[in-house]
Write a protein that binds this DNA or RNA. Sequence first.
DNA 1: GCTTCGCATGGAA
DNA 2: GTTCCATGCGAAG
Length: 766
Amino acid sequence: GVDCSKCARNTRAAMAPPNPVWSSAMHTTQNVADRKDNPVKSWRPPAGQISSQWRQTNLWSVSSIQSDLQQRLAYEFDRPSGSEKLLPGRTFIHAQERKFDDMHDRPTTPAGMNQIMRERDANGHGQPTNLDPAYSYALYHRDGPHPNSLHDPSHHGGENDSLSSRKVAIPDASTGVDAGFKLDSHHTAILRDDPSSLSVGLPSNFASSNGPKDHIRIAPSQQQTQMASSSLQKQFYSHSVSGYNEFQAQLRNGRPRMDAKARSQLLPRYWPRITDQELQHLSGEYPTSNSVITPLFEKMLSASDAGRIGRLVLPKKCAEAYFPPISQPEGLPLKVQDASGKEWIFQFRFWPNNNSRMYVLEGVTPCIQSMQLQAGDTVTFSRTDPEGKLIMGFRKATNLSSEQEETTKPVNGAPISSEANGKVSAPDSSPNAVVSRQNKVNTESKSSSPVEQATASKVDTGGLAQKEGPGTGQSSPGPVKRKATSVSQKIKRLRMDNEESMELKITWEEAQELLRPPPKAPSIVVVDGHEFEEYEEPPILGRKTYFVTDQSGSSCGPAQEISMEELAELIPIKAGLGGTKKSKTRIEADTIDASDGLDTLANLAILGEGEALPSQPTTRHPRHRPGCSCIVCIQPPSGKGPKHKQTCTCNVCMTVRRRFRTLMLRREKRQPKDTDSPRKKEPGQASEMLSQTVSGPLAASASATSSPQKANVNADGTEDMAVDHKTTSSPVKNHIDLNIQPERDDEQSPKSDAAGAARLLRDNPT
DNA sequence: GCTTCGCATGGAA
DNA sequence: GTTCCATGCGAAG
């Protein structure tokens, strides 16, 4: 049964954020014993409103390292700072203690729950009424019983009759396990708004119509239920309905999700300012579970935090409030999970310092590096319930979002830089998007074994560059001292980091410009009247692609080619034309691929057959639209497949002919001079070649664009080469067979392809 | 000579 | 004046 009077009596303490003084006399004896056994030499419990005397629950009893770790991970994050410390081995806590903590700390949404309320009255006394024993255990103990502990009678201690009697398993229909504390995805998910003032979900019959004054009892409309059921829509409920809206705004703006009490305990700089997106990102690891994430605190990394020492100084109050109590300077291992689901094990410890403590997390370097954090970035610590896992998020200082900036904190707001994790976090708030991301997160990495961690640490230490950049904000440049080699190494690392950062700092639009469709022709999918190219293969990273609106909307051809003047106008302009691919012809700023190929041919023609160029651009240019009939598109390197007709008058063919004639003429002129061996082209020649190569097709296309009917094609398709003969004075009198079968089909590489084409051009001047 | 560890120091809040 | 904490710094490995 539940003793409501005790509940009410202890509610104040239970609600005191974040580390209320637990002055109940019930722990006095234990406290004395604990103090006696406290081996800490130079530390005395600091006085003040935040007591450093910990009431340690059974969660911290240890029998093995692993169990110790697991249990400690289920630390109480709002544990009342009772005047005691539990001796190791204590396996029980008082029933009232558990009960009242449960009442106010643990969000609970058992199946069937359809109301959310905050058990709290104006005096801070909860007055739970109509307690249904069947749901009594749905009220979490604020000491953070780990699910394992929750369900493991041994952890609760059979000696505690009260506790045992209150342990009511609420089977989850879907899992068949005790899930009374779990959120039912079909009902309500609650994300606590702050570590100390917690939303408590109660079954409908739990709520009292005459309950505390500031109860929040939200009728479970279908809409609300659906909203809450989504991990995307995890709702924060505040003290009032208006407060709810306020918190909604806070979430969006990354403002601290704490109430006044909690704020009063922590310095503002440590208030968690996790945004919705960050929370969603963090919750990505738990897409299906009913976990809720409670932001605990955050800290901007100092230079020393992000340095190679691997020690992250924790704010004392935060460490004492949210991390497990430690009595030994050696501390204990703390398992922290990052947003990608990867688990890290840090050593949570402290140093005696001026009659106080200085808390640090040791071994954070691999994690910091994996997150690519540096001084000025912010790490956030959250906790999931009911798992009790520590979640470590981060916020890059460079991802400033102006609308989310806080005066108290220069770095804030932007969603967790997923790019740092290699994940794309589009600002899409649709559930599907998040589900997709979450699934991705789940499938990405879940390395959790310590061994793996150690391995990862080694790899990270050795393989990743240290981040010791000056950062922003309060970060300071690395100390210019000690060894010059160390400084130079740091400078090198910094330069590397900066270079990497520069490369990564591109906008989405800029990234789009660098993407080229894969060679395989896409299928066109029409969605809402818009055509989309659907590629089976990933895009290719390349140089910028510029888009030119095409009047006709057809595929590339002479009429669609862009003039040099047009291109010259386009190139300096940011390519903002690429919004939709429909009816656009893409032309690359680095010239058409065909020109690349032609340039290759030209070079090969000069150098002679078989002399390869250092790097040959491909003649396959996937930028051509589906249906493109140019030679590059329709003729594969092997020579198989559709071929251009001999009389083809497409721009490429025309250019190839023209270029070939020019090259052959040049070669003839050169051969009398140096007939011994082919030589490398000279710089001047190279530029000239490039100029011709670029101008050739473009110039041709310019005229073709302006007057497509100028193509000198006879009625039978035979091209009138008079123009070319005039302009080139080429000795080549006859047509070039562009479609001749290569000698070897195995020459399929771009290089060999180009060589083969050149050979074709040379050997088949007819 | 370098790194790590543990503590001390001193500026800032 | 007190406390916190970023970082310095010497000892040890």
